[in-house]
Each structure stands twice: as C-alpha cells, then as structure tokens.
Write a protein that binds this DNA or RNA. Sequence first.
DNA 1: AATGAAATCGACCAGCA
DNA 2: TGCTGGTCGATTTCATT
Lengths: 174, 174
Amino acid sequence: MNDALRTAPDLDETDLAILERVEADFDVSLETLAEELDVSKSAVHYRVNKLKDNGVIKGITADIDPLAFGLEMVAITDISVTHESGYSEEIGETLAALDGIEQVYYTMGDVDFVAISRVQSRDQLNDLIDRIVAIDGVNETSSRFVMQEFENKREITANLAEEARNNILTPSNQ
Amino acid sequence: MNDALRTAPDLDETDLAILERVEADFDVSLETLAEELDVSKSAVHYRVNKLKDNGVIKGITADIDPLAFGLEMVAITDISVTHESGYSEEIGETLAALDGIEQVYYTMGDVDFVAISRVQSRDQLNDLIDRIVAIDGVNETSSRFVMQEFENKREITANLAEEARNNILTPSNQ
DNA sequence: AATGAAATCGACCAGCA
DNA sequence: TGCTGGTCGATTTCATT
C-alpha cells in the first residue's frame, strides 16, 4: 500500500480538472466552469459540493494583496529553543500567534523553528523579533531579509509532479 | 510620509471588517455578511467589487487540503548559487516552476534561495533535490524536514500588528 | 456611495440510470 | 453513487438618488 495516499479520497480526472480550475480562481460562474470542463452545471455543482464535504476543498477564501496594506518586508527567521524546556508544541503555537508571523515550521536539525513573517517596516520587524526572544524557552534567533519572492503560488494541484498525479488517479490502495 | 503605505488605497473600518471576514471564508451569503457587519446587502456587494477592482482582493480561490493528495512531507531547502552567473532572477523562476516547490525566497546572506516544498514521499523529495542541483548556476543545497507546521494561516488581515492596522486606517499620507 | 427593482445565476430537490 | 432538469431563492446589474 502506498502510505502517502491513505487519506486520499478517490478522485477522477474531472475532479482534478475542477480543483485545478477553482484553486486558481473560484470567481467564475458554474456555467463557465461547466462549459470549460464539458459537463453539466448540475454535475459541477454536485462535485464541488462533494469535494467540500470530503474536506478536499477546505474553504473558499479571498486572497488579499499584502502590498495593499504596505506589508512590503518579508523575513525568514531561524529560532532555536532550549531543549530542556520541551514545550516545542506550545512555543510553536505561541510563535504562530504573533502578529506579523505568517508561517511557522518545526524542523529537524540545529535550528528548531523557521518563521516567515511579513511586516510594514524594519521597525516592525525589530519589534517582532523582540517579541520572539521574549517567549519563554526561545534561545537564539537569526533573521534574513527576503529580497524577492518568486511565484507565491500555493496551488497544490499546480505543484503535483507527474508521479504524484498518477498516484491520485490510480491509487495502489483501491 | 509613511513610505510603507504608498500603495495603500484608503480603507475604512467597514472595508477592513469585510476583508477580515472574507479572507478567512468567502463561502458566505451576502445576507449573512450584511447582517454581521450591519450594512445593507447592496453596500457589501458594492464594497467587495470595489476591493476587487482596487486589487486589494487579488482573487477568490478554493483552498485545497494537501493531505487529500497525500502531500504529507514538507521540506525547507537552502540553495546557494554561483555568483559569477548573476542570473538569480532566472534561477528563482526556474526553481519556482519545479513541481513540488511551493514558495521560493531570494534572500540576503550566505544562502541565496530558500525553497519550501511539499511532496508525497522521501523519493519525491530526493527527485526534487536532483532537479534543483541540475539547474545551471546552482551550487549547493541543504534540506531540512519539517516535522510540524503551525497554523498555516496566511491571512494578511489577521496578522496585522496594531500599529500596522492604525497605519491603514489613518494614513499619514492622506 | 448607496439603493431598489429587474434580470441573471446558483442551490436544492425529486427522480432516473 | 453520479447525474439531470426544473423550481425557487439569492445574487448581480443598473438606473437613480
């Protein structure tokens, strides 16, 4: 059995086509979708609903431009913690809850956490780092400025390698 | 003048309230929104449209659960490039185009690029790293496994520090 | 910028393969 | 289970303020 796919519901090509389309842009009429995919409106509606029930589609959200809020500065911060504390779960949640921090990863290796943050100014970044080091158990931090972000595409379906796509369409555990 | 806000269109509290709501969940009726925000349905609709025209709302998208595709493995890869090549822009775009890579950051410092990738298996990660080192100009890579992701909330409005929020509502450059 | 009415579109349901 | 076609309610559009 392919362990990586144990949670995957069975999807066919039409489901994948719908997902690829709506993951990039949901602001489209059912009718347009139906024409593009060459199925009926009702069928699209039925499948989209099922994908929502399945949890494959976690939600419909509006993507907001960070620059519209002046959030022009991105930083990557490595954070190491004192291991005797052992509260990595708690520290991770505390980090993720800080204003300005977008993502927190707990990693294997010397550095324990990697945080990606987005702020308006260098002052706000300094303030954020102060708030990070003030967290109990945080040992050391080291930040890098991001000069350029490439294609902040977070599209799952657009990132599937061919092998991964094949695994979904023809699961070994069916 | 507050340099960080030069691109910010003027937003009022109602706009912010709409954005906070729809950034987390757009799958809501106009009526519900109107009740929650205590404005008329038409007004909500008008403002949402304006925010789309403004570019503040970049788009409406479906969020897909990576686990539904068996994408259980996340890695952070530091990538250094040979500087005589000078094609960092091109390398960044090439990296971002690789299947499996979600985000690419070009940073200041020893490490030139940081890539976040999401794959189904260790094999796929090895394959991805092979594809990275095969890129012309790539010098060295070093990857860390992510053991846990904390609150992958990418919500701009939820991450604003109070100062940042105040900057938007009462811009110094108005 | 916001409204209300008219036109359009999507959600839901009973029924069918 | 997956889909059809039709009805009703919701949303979009637009003239108007």
